[in-house]
Amino acid sequence: MDAYDTDSEARRGADEPRAPEPPAAPAPPLPPHLRTGVAALSLPYQIGAALALAIVAVTVCVHLGMTFLHVAPANAVTKQHGRAIEDWVYPEFEQNWKLFAPNPLQQNIAVQVRAQVLAADGTVRTSGWYDLSAEDGRVIDGNLLPSHTQQNELRRAWDFFTATHGTDNRPVGLRGALSETYLRRIVVMRLDRDDAAGPDGSVERVQVRSVSTNVRPPGWSQEQVSDKPAYRELPWWAVTPADRVGGAR
């Protein structure tokens, strides 16, 4: 690419005093095995090299074309050849660069959970709401190196859940079912860490909800947004042994 051409030109240029001059005379004369490039090859090998060049050139072009179509908005070509593009890109070249685009998220979405706890004496009580996102937020505060477990785990599990569930909270397809188990395992693990069950109780059922609050517009803006949180409450889920850490298999 052009950036390189000019760079390597500059390396040899006179405006580069710090670059060491190539040694005036490399002590031993060039042995024959230092000759390189296609020019040093006999015809059959040259044909082989040309073939290699053609294959690499085509692969690079196809790969870049496919990747471009994969990240481009839906268009005439992707509608016609969507299948071929997917086959090329998935699973290892999947990518998404809509970083804070087209619009950044403007809501704080907190995932909260409460539990029905069965105590040793057989009584059942319902806990208060645990704000798991707020717990994440507290460990992220003042943290130079937030962990993926704090910054991504719950946040992306909730995204995964909402992306694979209808507004009626019913799962869509296999991924919907997976996301439900995943979310349940996360909240059960977190409740366990928060010792929600107490010394000899056990969490029997859990309920998850999300609380979305608009980010307050900047102080210098005239904009008005509602500061009322919006709730999305999921049904109570029974906790199975498979939902507890270590009981997965």
Partner: peptide
């Protein structure tokens, strides 16, 4: 021209409020 304001005020992305 306000986009940059928002990520900086999300709880998950504001270690230094």
């Amino acid at each position: 021209g306000t986009a940059v304001y928002y990520p900086l005020h999300l709880d998950y992305f504001s270690p230094w409020p």
